[in-house]
Design a protein around this nucleic acid. Structure first.
Lengths: 370, 370
DNA sequence: TGGGGGAAAGTTTAGTAAACGTCTGCGGTG
DNA sequence: CACCGCAGACGTTTACTAAACTTTCCCCCA
């Protein structure tokens, strides 16, 4: 069939054996069309080389959302954390397709934010979801200023006029410290990092605000700062130990990667985990379940974050008038494993330890329920 | 038509002149049915006294959400603020009906939370939205513990395992203080209240954290505490003035009601607003636009809060598995009016004042745009 | 009395008729 | 030749139904 023959949607409908309305619904991804019928229509379109009269702006049936995965320095947006990106994308993707959007992904590593911004302005997209882990407040203001509907995830600024979906660090750290406190640990430590990301800063602030809230006393010597990579955390901890660091009874580590390196150095130093030192991480990376000892850690639903980001972005896109900025905090859950026990700061009798294990199993059940 | 005559959906369909499938869609609130056809079907159902064979658990086509308006002490949940309740309800109602829910409202004044709780447990409702303005953290934990899908609005607790939708006090107060700072006011005051509501506390905390953030110095004598009613604020301010209070150049008032009383007392004391003292309130009550001088104030979209509460509640209700708690902060807007000018703390020449008025008109335009 | 099978009642899926909205082409006029 | 207006063609959307599917009830038999 020649291309100069003027084809209409009626010709496709006749060829596919359906109505014109059905062809329109298929081409626009609307209505409830069986996959058999849809395939038939698309085959007729392809074999007849049909070009619709109405020019489609993107030539795509569905509007497009773009996810910007930005690694400015790569300290936290890296392969160690790629499972996060995957979880975010899963949540975004399912909600995007539910709302008839296409989800594109664009990665940036080590590029200036201005370069990122250039790819957004004028692009045939309805909105963007930005991974803000390694972005500064200034970066966020710049991207927001482009006027494209935008939601930032994995970062949070209470007073920037932009939309955010992030984990609730305050709540998460509270669960950790409350847990240490319940277990009678009198000397609580914190392994942080000097890397400048908002979530690290929020987690540090959450540590101190929850220390106040729970009436915990912290020895400043128990606040350690290490490099945020596995190797850096390991080496920094080894150095601290060889400098004669006196260990606290338990440590909350800013994230799981840091916890892995920290644990490795402690164990090589002859420290028993969790017998001598209990450890709680943050992130629930897959390895945290399988390592030895398995790591007690904070789980945040990254899928939920991705899902909510798309939901909020859709509202912004479809709003008839300017919307007030919305900031969403998604709650966390403490996942109890072997790196953390119920021992207290003085040695325990075997019987008490045995009871503590039973308590731990019960607590594990209730923590998972929460 | 006798009730013992066995009626089926086919009889209703015949009476309404539609198919049985259409009757079913109407009764179950599904599909795309015109209001004319829906009315016809419902009329046939009513006039024929049709009772479906399948017993409906609630006997209602739509599931029900209940809004609990709780005034524990009435200091802020009162007639002065009934426009808020109305705005919340508008936002909830439109989203509830969009999602095929009925919205019920139940009011409680001066009753213990346990009495409120008793009305929820076992009630034929899918979920509740609770006005948490005057609730304590313990109240919230108690209600949340009932196991009914619940969202709290107009209050916020970062570490309570519950869902919240509230205004972003941090952002709002930042806008106020940034505005004072931009205008060169060197002596900034704050009118707060000793009434124990979470938003008042959050607003106080936000005041101090933004003072720090913006590098503002505050004289403790410029922090005033008054009663939270119009009359109480007026009388308390009069007392402070007769005690020889030295006024700051500008004051942020915790809410509009307090601002009204504060302004009245100042003016009776011969103080010119905004010439001698600029005032910014919080809430944008209707009267703030019409009073003399009209009040510069913070506007929060209560409709948006109501809307988001229903959206989140629907997700909780329909989730196949437990969801992490979600906390949402809705942004605010500074509405510039006559109670606040651009004057600085030293007297200004008429020419500069005239320029300041022009600046104010421009700023008003840009603030409204934000 | 209990269980199984079949029919009736009700629900859901997916397609279309018809109304609605947009675009293009043609004819008329200046 | 260019521009404007109108009518018809083309494509989209709304809302209803046919038919397939699911649930419930009733009757019959052991």
């Amino acid at each position: 069939m020649r291309h100069d023959k003027k084809l209409t949607i009626k010709d496709i409908a006749a060829a596919a054996g359906v109505s014109a309305a059905t062809v329109s619904l298929v081409l626009n991804g609307k209505g409830e069309i069986s996959s058999v019928t849809r395939a038939r229509v698309l085959e007729a379109v392809a074999s007849l080389n049909y070009v619709p009269r109405v020019a489609k702006s993107g030539s795509a049936a569905a509007a497009t959302l773009r996810f910007l995965k930005i690694a400015k320095h790569g300290h936290t947006v890296n392969r160690d954390h790629s499972v996060f990106i995957s979880d975010y994308i899963d949540g975004m993707s399912s909600e995007a397709s539910r709302r008839s959007y296409k989800l594109e992904i664009a990665s940036f590593e080590g590029q200036p934010i201005s370069a990122v911004a250039e790819t957004i302005a004028g692009a045939p997209i309805s909105g963007v979801i930005v991974l803000g882990t390694e972005l500064t407040e200034e970066d966020i203001v710049l991207i927001q200023g482009l006027g494209v509907p935008t939601v930032f995830i994995d970062t949070f600024h209470p007073i920037v006029d932009a939309n955010f979906v992030d984990m609730n660090n305050e709540d998460a750290v509270h669960k950790v410290l409350a847990r240490f406190q319940e277990q009678g640990f009198e000397r609580i430590g914190f392994v942080t990092s000097h890397v400048d990301t908002t979530n690290f800063r929020l987690r540090r602030e959450a540590f101190f605000s929850n220390v106040d809230r729970l009436g915990i006393t912290i020895d400043p010597a128990d606040i350690l700062s290490v490099e945020s990579t596995y190797e850096g955390s390991y080496l920094d901890t080894r150095r601290l130990l060889s400098d004669g660091l006196k260990l606290a009874r338990c440590y909350f580590c800013t994230n799981d990667i840091i916890a892995y390196g920290f644990i490795r150095a402690l164990r090589e130093h002859g420290v028993s985990i969790p017998g001598d030192v209990s450890i709680i991480g943050f992130d629930n990376l897959p390895q945290s379940a399988t390592m030895n000892p398995s790591l007690t850690t904070i789980e945040v639903s990254k899928r939920k974050i991705g899902y909510l980001a798309v939901a909020i972005l859709d509202e912004i896109i479809n709003a008839g008038e300017p919307q007030p900025p919305v900031k969403i905090l998604v709650g966390a859950e403490l996942v109890l494993r072997d790196s953390h026990d119920a021992g207290n700061s003085n040695g325990t009798a075997t019987l008490l330890r045995s009871g503590s294990v039973a308590d731990q199993l019960i607590s594990s059940s209730s923590a998972r329920k929460a």
